[in-house]
């Protein structure tokens, strides 16, 4: 191949003089994780609320939540990113919009990125939660009612504990997705892992080394998450139940 490899580049100093290229990539990885984790909290909270409401008997609330899921599922993530970053501050009252835009960096791009990923993923989590609840035998809900539990109590003590165990595997893949999707935040200026690799490529001209470095870090992160989640699955497993593996597509 007509390309000059130089694997030692990772130990060279960057032009910023702040450290080696490897250091740049690792800082990028930290931003990837910081973005993904913060967004994941939003995604879980909103996703569970929306997913649960979709299975309650309240028709109008269910319809509203269906609309919520459709909205965030049917607009490309990149477009949503632009909406949060470019459009929303302009639609808010001027002083509020300016306050958002003038947040000290990197927060001015980090916050919209987290909100965007959080809401985007919450729609997908909501789908999993709904599917998980609907996969439970109807008898469980009836048993809750028969015991004299109110609807919230039935959810809290009967339905949700089972649902979470069932949907752990698809939630794991949603979490992996949010890590990968955080790379889209580079378009609004978050210097996460992919952006760090791109910057390394620009300054060192070693394109393939930079992207190989990032690829390896993504793979390691993936493996860690998968093993971590398997451990969690084993810890919370209820003897006698096998959670059905719900197929999760998407990226």
């Amino acid at each position: 191949m007509n390309y000059h490899w130089n694997w030692k580049i990772f130990w060279d100093l960057t032009p910023e003089g702040s450290g080696t290229y490897l250091h740049t990539l690792l800082v990028g990885l930290l931003w990837t994780l910081a973005t993904a984790l913060a967004a994941w909290v939003i995604a879980l909270v909103l996703g569970v609320i929306v997913g649960v409401i979709r299975t309650t008997p309240r028709k109008w609330a269910g319809r509203f939540c269906n609309g919520y899921v459709e909205l965030f599922r049917n607009i490309p993530l990149l477009v949503q990113m632009f909406l949060w970053f470019f459009v929303i501050p302009e639609l808010l009252p001027k002083h509020l919009g300016d306050a958002i835009k003038q947040m000290p960096p990197p927060w001015a791009s980090y916050v919209p990125a987290v909100l965007c990923l959080g809401f985007f993923t919450s729609a997908r989590v909501a789908e999993q939660v709904r599917a998980g609840i609907q996969a439970l035998p109807r008898g469980q809900r009836m048993a809750g009612t028969a015991l004299g539990l109110t609807l919230p109590q039935t959810y809290r003590h009967v339905i949700l504990p089972m649902t979470f165990r069932i949907i752990l595997p698809p939630l794991t893949s949603e979490f992996l997705n949010i890590i990968k999707n955080s790379s889209v935040a580079l378009t609004i200026g978050v210097v996460e892992l992919t952006a760090a690799a791109r910057a390394m490529q620009e300054f060192s001209f070693q394109v393939f080394e930079a992207f190989t470095g990032a690829t390896i870090l993504y793979i390691l992160t993936n493996i860690l998450v998968i093993y971590g989640m398997r451990w969690v699955e084993r810890r919370v497993a209820i003897p006698g139940f096998i959670g059905p593996a719900v197929q999760a597509g998407g990226h």
């Binding site: 889209v184 992919t194 992207f211």
Partner: peptide, 23 residues
């Protein structure tokens, strides 16, 4: 491999790499 890396990174990879593979 493909399922562990973000599409954005794959896009960069391929745009720069495919001509060498072609060669």
């Amino acid at each position: 491999l493909m399922r562990s890396v973000p599409l954005v990174l794959v896009i960069f990879w391929f745009y720069f790499l495919v001509p060498y593979i072609g060669a």
